[in-house]
């Protein structure tokens, strides 16, 4: 079982977390987007077989939503960090 490091609680079994999907921020001004661009935000996914930045929620723990960088083919977790430090 994958061991995920919650930035707050430390290493925990992945069963304590809920996956939040690959990182995609909501457009600042949605009304400025065309239908295709809005559909692209809603539905299209990179779905890479490579390192991917994604959301996780420590729902059975401290309730923190945080980001992780994980290689989707090997499930190797490269790092996890709070959302606030995303461009640190």
């Amino acid at each position: 079982m994958l061991l995920l490091t919650c930035p707050n609680c430390g290493d925990r079994n992945v069963s304590e977390f809920r996956f939040g999907g690959e990182l995609s921020s909501r457009p600042k001004d949605p009304s400025a987007l065309s239908s295709a661009e809005w559909a692209n935000y809603l539905y299209m996914r990179n779905n890479v077989m490579d390192a991917q930045t994604e959301w996780w929620h420590h729902n059975a723990g401290c309730g923190l939503w945080f980001l992780a960088e994980r290689h989707t083919r090997t499930n190797e977790v490269i790092k996890t960090y709070p959302y606030a430090k995303r461009n640190a």
Binding site: R18, S25, W55, W65
Partner: peptide, 11 residues
């Protein structure tokens, strides 16, 4: 509850 926590913690 989890959905709201996401919006609160992501901006």
């Amino acid at each position: 509850f989890e959905w709201l926590q996401w919006w609160l913690q992501s901006g």
